[in-house]
Write a protein that binds this DNA or RNA. Sequence first.
DNA 1: CTGAAAGCGCTAACAA
DNA 2: TTGTTAGCGCTTTCAG
Lengths: 332, 332
Amino acid sequence: MSIWDIARVAGVSQQTVSRVINGKARVSEPTRAKVLKVIDDLGYRPNRLAQTLAGGPARAVTVLTSDTALYGAAATLRGMEEAARAAGFSVGISVLDAASQQTDIALRLNRPGEPVMVIAFDEAGMSALRALPPDVPVAAAVEYRSDDDPDADPWQVWLDDRAAAAHATRYLLSLGHRTVHYLAIPSSTSPLAQRTRGWQDALRDAGLPVPEPLQGGWTPRSGYLSVRSLVADRSVTAILCGNDDLALGVMRAAREAGRDIPGDLSVVGFDDSPPAAYLNPSLTTVRLDFEGLGRACFGLLYRRLAPESAPAVPEWSEPELIVRESSGPARA
Amino acid sequence: MSIWDIARVAGVSQQTVSRVINGKARVSEPTRAKVLKVIDDLGYRPNRLAQTLAGGPARAVTVLTSDTALYGAAATLRGMEEAARAAGFSVGISVLDAASQQTDIALRLNRPGEPVMVIAFDEAGMSALRALPPDVPVAAAVEYRSDDDPDADPWQVWLDDRAAAAHATRYLLSLGHRTVHYLAIPSSTSPLAQRTRGWQDALRDAGLPVPEPLQGGWTPRSGYLSVRSLVADRSVTAILCGNDDLALGVMRAAREAGRDIPGDLSVVGFDDSPPAAYLNPSLTTVRLDFEGLGRACFGLLYRRLAPESAPAVPEWSEPELIVRESSGPARA
DNA sequence: CTGAAAGCGCTAACAA
DNA sequence: TTGTTAGCGCTTTCAG
């Protein structure tokens, strides 16, 4: 069933049906009503592929992301999907695994030039971003982009991880800790990731030496394995973690080493993932507005596609330190 | 750039280019090599929309799911995406919120008749499944389907929640608990969800009275709120939870009520989500192979689309009880 | 083995 | 306000 069937039954041309469907051009009210009735009676549904192929406006977007299981990526994706669907876009998703070659990326799109959003919090996302052909309109959620670089890609959104990490570090120092150790997530901008930088900023500002940061992965297991020796050292009294999952692993390693949290050791995470508030002890962490970031990323893409008609890019929240049970004063 | 450009440069007809691209028909080796070279030189990428529109085989599938943030749905989606991409399908995703009307569902598809997978672990997913027009090929991951019903939809996959819940309950009873309480997730087959049934099965088989099950939601917060009064009752010594997030909330509520886990109260979850092994105490839970289920769901859909050529539907793992620290013998 | 034709369902330009 | 005419990029006929 196509617009031709509707046109025939309604006694109009197929073009008039097209006009009714996409609502732009003027159609007389009686005609429009007649066509809509036939559409409804016959249960007609437009074919979006054909609409796009024939040169209609872009109404589909593909999201490139590396791991849907991670809270940050999942929440960002959620925000993107929500905003995209609200704007009438269908959302494709394509997961980047370690094996995905740069040349493959363009082949994942449904058509050359299809708009794309990239969740580029890690190296896989960043390299996908770089691998995209220049003709695809893209917006990306990235780990961080410098504010001062005028040549930087304007089609990116990010959270101010650096300031947030600095804030969290200062908070721990204010509790009397002599220093703060840092367990890093893998970073897209390594070796000096923004969270790492922020932590360093705060320590340097306080005139303290900067311990060697530990390199972790993304999972609780990785956090657990990375800090087993560190937590055995009783002089270590505060650990900042690159995400909540790492913090979970750290807390377990600390427990097994006989450390008491927060009496003996303070642990702070990053993300404020849903379980954080219910852990034992509940986790002090930096809340990040990934959903807002995802919505904003789509907003940016929309403006890129339709500079005139697209609405303003929605705001998103600043990172916020949520103090819970896992952090406390340094033991006197 | 289209196949016409390739054809012109290669000095062949556009039809020959088409033959080379989809590799089916016979093309002489010299011709094929020539065409492939031109494709490579010009960086040509086929337009999948046009391929599909022109009557090519289906190479796109849309996943309908209600909440990507939940572990079960996220992991299932991951399996689906992995299998679909491996088979050369692009994956669309459309999130079902509470507001989504039944009639909207068909409009989310990129074309009438596009294949669909539904993650139907909850009521939103089930009603979307019911709302799909009869002409769309669909496969679904559902909470449970009876094995004995010969009229049941054969295009569904599920995990044997009922047996798993019974197993977990028997395990708790074997530890000496007088009875086991159950905190349920919202179910697509309420009022008697399969996990609830399995729990009842085990209690009845043991000749025990069945306490009223508690109705929870999906989140830790929901688990926390639902059992605050229950955990105050010292005679309650074992609680089975419909998922790990609920269990997390339950453990917190128990702690606040002064209960010791597992000395005083055993808590068992469902899912074996990534944090489970690192919680304090680590969580005894039923491991569910959502990824395998998602892969199998795509395998089923593939067979439905191409009964001849599709490979066998991959197997997935049975639920498995993982015993950790949160469960132990009833206090004597 | 290769080519020419027709058409998938739709939108855009142009006419009337 | 409506109808006519061309395509979008590709795959399927059907002829050679």
